[in-house]
Amino acid sequence: GLNAQAKALLQQYRPIYMSKLSGHLYALREVCNPTREQQEQLLESSQAALEKAVREYAKQMAAGKINRGIVVINGMAQMQGQSEPWDAVRNELDKSIAEHLTEDQLALYKQDARDRREFRRQAAATNLVSAIDKQLSLTEEQRDAVHASLLKSWQESWEVAVRGLLQSPQYLPQLPDKVIVPHLNANQKSVWKAAQR
């Protein structure tokens, strides 16, 4: 039983997540060359999880329970990130992959996931260094040192920080001082501290 607003939200969100899921399944087909039957199993279970999660999300949103990144479930506030439909789809897909792929296919899949993560990390670190460089005019040595320092203490959430670069050319991401400051000179330190406030 969804009300009209929840139905409209479902219509709006379903194709977005379906398209994301399709992208993952195409990639998986390239990497693991699954049989038709395996593809059917993965599609079926992940699509069912998607439908369930998006319905729930639309329902909560229509009920006004999703606000400023916080969802209220049974009176308990939870971070929106944990209940976003995609997390549920991802979990089901991972489960289904572990269940239906052969060991060899699974090894290929895991290696590909590692490669992608590493590529994303490198690219995000490069973009963060570039943003810091625009504000602080780093030397080449400093750029290399900050890049290495970022990768050494990398946090997944910093990938999201890169999005800020699209919003504003003056953007400086919030990053821990201990990762950046040891590599700056006195002038750069004061600009950095001012920007982090």
Partner: peptide, 11 residues
């Protein structure tokens, strides 16, 4: 992205 459709694997 076109919806994913299962197909026969490459030979």
């Amino acid at each position: 992205v076109q919806p994913f459709e299962p197909q026969d694997p490459r030979p």
